[in-house]
Design a protein around this nucleic acid. Structure first.
Length: 270
DNA sequence: CCCCAGGCGGTTG
DNA sequence: CAACCGCCTGGG
């Protein structure tokens, strides 16, 4: 862990913070009264904000860490181009969502967060995740303030569902503990999901209790960067029904279908 | 008070 | 296999 410093990452056009942090892919970034986002990625708490058209990160992590996290190595112009012209509606969503990036989040945090997400709204997901970190995560200090890291699978594997009552996640508590135990016991090997292709990664995750089709696709998209994944929730389903009445096959969108999904999702929510 | 929310699992026909 | 329903909790 290095010393705390400010790093200039990229332009605000390449990475739009508001769109990226508020399109439902992550739950731990909140804007403060200075207009800076405070959050934690992996073991690094940070401020992320705009200054003179640039995105600045204030943290103890090296630049390469943030370039990876914000997926700055992927050519989003080429990705946009790959599904341009598929439909007028999607083209509009793409233009509207320009600047969204698919984060490379911690795999276990993605598993846990999207288990919690089921049948829940963003606000409540954020609350549950926050309490999960406060009660069970390792304490860290940043900018003179106390903050908490996301609890490891190993630490949660020692708990029983009842122990999670304090985070008020309801029936999802059983799924969280079960996933933590599977991972710690080696029944579910998260590292191997990186080596798998998208369908196999989804299939593997769905063997875990509490992870179905939608949650599995969110996990592989936001935690494992399988960009072909196209999670369909009730919002997306509604949009697809309205704008593709004849039917819709996300596989036709190709290798960046997940980015298209985020553009559509952001546009509906807006 | 009832209803449902960015689903899943289990049961039923 | 599709259709249904219960599940914790919170908010409308």
């Amino acid at each position: 862990m290095g010393n705390r410093k400010e790093i200039e990452l990229c332009s605000c056009e390449e990475l739009n913070l508001k769109k990226t942090f508020e399109c439902g892919q992550c739950f731990r970034w909140n804007v403060n009264n200075e207009g800076k986002y405070f959050g934690t990625a992996g073991e690094y708490p940070a401020y992320v904000f705009e200054r003179q058209g640039k995105v600045i990160v204030d943290s103890c992590a090296p630049k390469a860490f943030w370039e990876y996290y914000f997926d700055l190595d992927t050519d989003y112009s080429a990705a946009d181009e790959s599904f341009r012209g598929y439909s007028v509606y999607l083209d509009e969503c793409s233009a509207n969502g320009k600047g969204i990036r698919i984060l490379r989040q911690d795999p276990w945090e993605a598993v846990c967060s999207f288990i919690i997400s089921q049948c829940n709204n963003i606000k409540r997901i954020q609350g549950i995740v926050e309490r999960l970190c406060e009660y069970f995560g390792e304490e860290a200090e940043f900018d003179g303030k106390k903050t908490f890291l996301f609890p490891s699978a190993e630490s949660l594997s020692k708990l029983e569902p009842e122990d999670l009552a304090v985070i008020r996640s309801g029936y999802r508590a059983e799924y969280i503990v079960s996933a933590a135990k599977s991972i710690t016991a080696g029944i579910l090997d998260l590292d191997s999901l990186f080596e798998m292709d998208w369908p196999e990664a989804v299939r593997t995750l769905k063997c875990q209790k509490g992870i179905g089709e939608k949650v599995a696709n969110c996990i592989v998209l936001f935690g494992f960067h399988h960009l072909e994944a196209f999670p369909v929730d009730t919002w997306i389903r509604k949009a697809l029904k309205e704008f593709f009445p004849a039917g819709f096959d996300p596989n036709q969108l190709g290798p960046y279908a997940g980015l298209a999904q985020q553009y559509i999702f952001y546009s509906i929510r807006e």
